[in-house]
Amino acid sequence: MIFNIQKCSIHDGEGIRTIVFLKGCPLRCKWCANPESQMGTPQVMELPSRCIGCGRCMDECPQKAIFPKGNTFGIDRKLCTQCFHCTDICCTGSKKLVGENRTPEEIFKEIYKDRFFYQQNNGGVTFSGGEPLLQPEIVLAIAKKCKACGINTAMESCGAADFEKFKIVLPYIDSMFMDIKHINPEIHRELTGQTNEVILENIRRIAETGMPITIRTPVIPGWNDSVENIQGISNFIAPIKTIHEYELLPYHDFGKSKYTSLGRVYEADEVETPSDNAMRQLVAAANEVLELSGKVCFYTKDNTKYIIPSTERVKKDTACSAESAH
């Protein structure tokens, strides 16, 4: 089951990419930008700006779960049984179905349409989510077709999956992006719902296959943006030969509205985007560790990669989070 196919992306792999977003994720990160990815089943999203106020969804809801809400109509999620009748009859997409079952053949057909773009700049397809490896058979079937046609394949993974699922897919994947949210297992559990032991072990085992891996950490001010955490992750990365890059991703709240659309509370509501200075200091702190092993840490802004050498780090006794505007 997928929830989006994004074309002409310049992120998540080399060149122009087609990103296939699969539904279902074992983690529940408090800041998740794609909350619609977490459940492995279809969901109803509410988009009030599209509503024309006809009221048909309310009139025809079998569970009487839809009610007037200002100039539009809201869903009582406690009454909703996800029958999706409202999404079937809404002519404007104000009630939108997120998640659809598509065969590997149908998905590959969409990917193959853009093969000429891939050929121009070494682009390809990236499997994302959610966690793609909750649906390993789908990923495997598509990746095999891509490999047969010479299309580069990459995968984003949270790492919280059975290694046997990784094992069957890895021969058809050219590179991977894997997240480490926090090096402390208990803080990792607090932030995501699970500890990180399985994730770290999977990274080690995948690296042993020779797979090129980029490690990423979303920088969430007040939660995981300490120098201690970033250098702890860097120390884990340093001896692993197939990891050459460590990317820090500054927090953004682009997914905030999606929580409202799903009838959920956004737990990162008070978090602010880290300042450029805070990001530079964290990258420099990571490079203080990684430079010794020939690796680099960077962050990206306006599609430009910034590698800040350790010499630019301003050393303080306090965590780098103090540099951020809270």
Rank of each mutant, 00 (worst) to 15 (best):
Q135C: 09
Y266F: 10
C54Y: 00
D12Q: 05
I151P: 10
G13R: 00
T126W: 07
T318Q: 11
I213C: 09
A65G: 15
Q6W: 00
T318F: 14
E272D: 13
K165V: 03
E131V: 13
E106C: 09
S94C: 15
I199C: 14
A148I: 03
C54S: 10
R189I: 06
L292H: 01
G129C: 11
G150K: 04
D12C: 13
G130C: 13
E60P: 03
S293F: 05
K144I: 03
G99M: 03
C91G: 13
M58E: 15
F127P: 08
T273K: 05
C51F: 11
H326D: 09
Q194P: 02
C51G: 12
P274Y: 08
H85V: 12
E288N: 09
F177D: 06
I66H: 12
P218D: 12
A286N: 09
F166G: 10
R102M: 07
F127T: 08
E190R: 01
E228R: 01
F108L: 01
M45V: 03
C91T: 04
S175W: 01
C83P: 05
I107G: 09
S157N: 13
K145T: 08
V139K: 08
E190I: 01
K147Q: 11
R115H: 11
L134F: 06
L79F: 07
N277Q: 07
P62A: 14
C297E: 04
C146K: 04
H326K: 01
R56Y: 03
R204T: 02
S49L: 06
G13H: 01
G210H: 01
T41C: 07
F166N: 04
E100G: 09
E197N: 11
E228Y: 00
